[in-house]
Design a protein around this nucleic acid. Structure first.
Lengths: 341, 341
DNA sequence: TTGTAAGCGTTATCAG
DNA sequence: CTGATAACGCTTACAA
């Protein structure tokens, strides 16, 4: 049973293809009786409009491109989850591209998305990306919404977690519980999210009359075995830190492990709060306090913005930034992870 | 700068569209000089064939559909990771669909994939799916490869983790370390993966002269707060279990938490091994012993099979099952998760 | 060796 | 109200 086309319906009813087309889109200029007949026949033949023909025709491809550094990452997979959910609901398919954190693959992904004539693009920048010419080029063809890792050089709507507030809340919580030397382990310094979190951390310190000490802040892409030495370095400071605030899942896990190996107790000796999202936090629960990133909501919100632009044909979308709230989950009181004999 | 078409090149060079088309695909019947000219012009105008027009023409859409229950799940996001990697490498785009574990959405996804004229389908069945008519229907249009959650009712290649061997190894390890009453917490009984794991568990027991006791085996979709009571139930048995073997991340985490709440120590009081994958294991490391599922490799392998079928036009692919090895990671010796004061 | 024309499924324009 | 016809970008007989 091949897919039915307008032509099949037309042949069946001995009318023209254009009439069928119009009847199906409920054009006002079609005889109600004809409409009924066409509708009935369409249902009977299980007719589905061919989206490829529609795209060729030029109107819209009903497909969205999503470009992320990595799918196998809780944050991004949750974001894609939200994106796919809303997109499907509104009749759009989602085509996925990974950049693996390289500029080169980001460019390739955009080229591919362009070739596919997607109606819009959702992107979280690779950590290598520092120029946006490739995105500006893309923008001449279809609207873009940035999420999570965004660039202010690019005039598009942006949907991000409230990194500043999250970092502020975490830092302030640490201060309120008596911490004075709070280390901050974070990712690449040129990323928007890094800067915002750092700003929140710094603001909280300063609002609470604590000096910002740059020796307590470390940037990088730390591999699994690089966090330990780093924590050592920090603990060797005089005075040593009494708390850690980390900017990613991996950093939080590495830090947990390093602290444990050094026989430091949480929160007796040091406190630890990680910037992550609820699913990860639940897996580690409840040893780790977290600033929850609403990844799924960010995905949902981002795609909703994009679809609004696409459907209302607001090609010139306001480059507004939507900030999704983060939530501080403090879980230092008990540790279900105490599983040793 | 709109995307260049064959027509643009033809106009530029004052030749016909068909000549350009042939030159670009290096047809033997074209003057080498013309070819050179066309090639040069194509490069200059940055010509990319329009995949949409190609699909309409009927040959191939260079797109693959991936249908999974949930993207926001480590297993599936890693599998998609591998799929996207290989697909992109071989020039195919990946369109993602989630079923959210419902049959209805699975059917909708297939319909959508069909409408998109994808060249092939990679699917991991929803837990609600018990009939395969919708897949057989799809098969008449494009080849399918199943992975992870597969149905033997459907004649397609299958790529799965070696669930039997993994479960066998886990169970045997528990026995060798002195356990005699090994509980098995697992998912929906009708899923292929459930059955294979159960079979491995059972075989290991029987090979080691232990009776299979069905009161120690529990099936279900346990919510976060349902695992606790279940563990209680099991522990109330006479004699109680001295080990747990769980079939998913969530079950493992729930079980960890429940055991802890009951002040049971791992592995002093009970042992615990979960069926999961390395990334999750690393996050929980090293409180949890695991049977690692090679999710990324399964994705890579599955898509490679599919592309081979597509490109060699082996529409009648042998419904062979590829079994990817699992690995037992024992990590009971130390617990970095002991973070309490 | 190159050009012409038909066709893929749909919509839009323009006649009837 | 309905029907031809052209167009979207490309491939492929068939003609020249």
């Amino acid at each position: 049973m091949e897919a039915a086309t307008l032509k099949d319906i037309a042949r069946e009813l001995n009318i023209s293809v254009s009439t069928v087309s119009r009847a199906l889109r409920d054009s006002y200029e079609i005889n109600p009786e004809t409409k009924r007949l066409v509708m009935e026949c369409a249902t009977r033949l299980n007719y589905r409009p061919n989206p490829i023909a529609l795209s060729l025709k030029g109107s819209s491809s009903k497909a969205l491109a999503v470009v992320v550094p990595q799918i196998a990452n809780y944050y991004f997979s949750q974001a894609i989850n939200g994106i796919e959910e809303v997109a499907q609901q509104r009749g759009y398919d989602v085509i996925i591209f990974q950049t693996h954190e390289t500029y080169e693959r980001e460019v390739a992904a955009l080229r591919q998305a362009l070739a596919r004539r997607v109606d819009g693009l959702l992107i979280s920048l690779s950590s290598e990306t520092s120029t946006v010419a490739h995105l500006q080029e893309f923008q001449q063809h279809a609207p873009i919404v940035q999420f999570d890792r965004v660039s202010s050089q690019l005039a598009t709507p942006r949907v991000v977690a409230d990194n500043f507030a999250g970092a502020y809340a975490a830092t302030e919580h640490l201060i309120k519980t008596g911490r004075r030397r709070i280390a901050h382990l974070t990712i690449q310094p040129w990323l928007s999210i890094t800067q915002e979190r750092l700003a929140g951390y710094r603001a909280a310190l300063e609002q609470n009359c604590l000096a910002y000490d740059e020796t307590l802040v470390r940037f990088g892409t730390f591999g699994p075995n690089e966090v330990g030495p780093l924590v050592d370095e920090l603990l060797a400071l005089q005075p040593p830190p009494d708390a850690f605030f980390t900017a990613s899942d991996r950093l939080a896990v590495g830090c947990l492990a390093a602290l444990r190996q050094r026989r430091l107790r949480i929160p007796a000796d040091v406190s630890l709060i990680g910037f992550t999202n609820l699913t990860v936090a639940d897996m580690l629960a409840p040893a780790l306090s977290t600033v929850e990133q609403p990844a799924t909501d960010i995905g949902r919100e981002a795609v909703a913005r994009l679809l609004d632009i696409i459907e209302r044909k607001h090609r010139a979308a306001p480059p507004a930034t939507v900030t999704m709230p983060t939530a501080l989950h403090v879980r230092e009181s008990t540790s279900l992870m105490d599983l040793t004999p």
